[in-house]
């Protein structure tokens, strides 16, 4: 028995080594990320949480609740107590998944706080691909329907639906291959197992910089700062722009003054030079929207994806 307590004692000694500064405020604000740690959303909000804390006066803690293609995290976020201490990161799938499976929530169960990031989607191809331009790609696709393989990071996910919507607008038929995440789909195109891949930054950007991949189609309103030579598809005559947005929401019924306080703190966190530098390094496109315009964005996206999903299911 004595040994046992010796072990306990040893364990408690190890515990004394401080890794975290002790004495956090008891009421920190939690942000649910409905995906596993390490994804694009997780990275962005971890970086934002780090800078927002000092403006809020309380720590912002990121909690990962992965599962169910984000359904688990959103369900919990929607059912949290509406006191402003439990926020959820709202990303495009919030307006997609409810159309595909029965979920206990839609965007209407949340109060918008702030939109942080909005990234255009894009198609990447290998630098040695036979198509030199979007026009050649589309011509080939018209002549050989269903032959060009386009990878995406998961069936029914954001970039998959973007690819489907683009296909419809451009009037071609592509062969969509789902992968389990952005990493695997980019790996597949690097290995030449698929012809193109539908991604959203930061996925694949470093390979474009290294010259192994190139941007075939950029679905943005304006050109990217990082790649000023790459024209958008709109410039090339296809009226299409779409992307992924990432913001923060609180459960429905959160008091307006709490929303305002949170919004102001996160806005200051966004403007913090440390966060700005992190965002630039990750090649994500900061795009601030206040509560009201962010709510409108979610509403219109919800409607858009509702129509799109219905059409696919036909």
């Amino acid at each position: 028995m004595k040994r046992f307590f010796t072990i306990l004692f040893a364990l408690s000694l190890i515990m004394v080594i401080p890794i975290h500064a002790a004495g956090f405020p008891t009421k920190e604000v939690q942000v649910i990320i409905p995906w596993a740690a390490g994804g694009a959303t997780d990275l962005i909000f971890r970086a934002l949480a780090a800078t927002t804390g000092k403006y809020l006066g309380k720590a912002v803690v990121v909690v990962n609740r992965p599962g169910g293609g984000s359904a688990v995290g959103y369900t919990e976020g929607a059912q949290a107590k509406p006191d402003g201490y439990m926020l959820t990161s709202a990303v495009t799938p919030l307006t997609i998944l409810p159309h595909q499976v029965t979920t206990a929530y839609t965007y209407r169960n949340f109060e918008p706080i702030i939109n942080v990031v909005s990234d255009p989607s894009m198609f990447l191809i290998r630098s040695d691909a036979p198509w030199k331009s979007l026009k050649e790609f589309l011509d080939y696709a018209r002549k050989h329907p269903d032959m060009i393989t386009v990878g995406n990071s998961g069936a029914g996910g954001g970039v998959h639906l973007v690819a489907l919507a683009f296909e419809k607008t451009a009037g071609v038929k592509l062969n969509h291959i789902p992968f389990s995440g952005g990493g695997p789909s980019v790996t597949a195109i690097l290995g030449g197992h698929i012809n193109a891949v539908s991604v959203s930054p930061p996925e694949g950007i470093s390979h474009v910089q290294a010259g192994k991949l190139k941007i075939l189609a950029l679905f943005a309103e304006k050109r990217l700062e990082m790649f000023p030579d790459v024209p958008t598809v709109k410039e090339q005559g296809v009226d299409f722009a779409m992307g992924m947005w990432r913001g923060l929401v609180a459960p429905k019924g959160t008091p307006p003054d709490a929303i305002k306080k949170l919004h102001d703190a996160f806005k200051q966190g966004m403007d913090d030079p440390v966060f700005k530098k992190n965002a630039t390094d990750m090649a994500v496109n900061l795009s601030y929207l206040g509560p009201e315009p962010f709510g409108k964005l979610m509403a219109s996206e919800h409607e858009f994806f509702g129509k799109l999903v219905k059409e696919i299911k036909k």
Partner: peptide
């Protein structure tokens, strides 16, 4: 009691597991 206290400090206080 000892077990509960030790694991509380280990997991909640030190490792910051929610």
């Amino acid at each position: 009691l000892i077990t509960a206290i030790v694991s509380y400090f280990l997991f909640v206080q030190w490792l910051k597991i929610p």
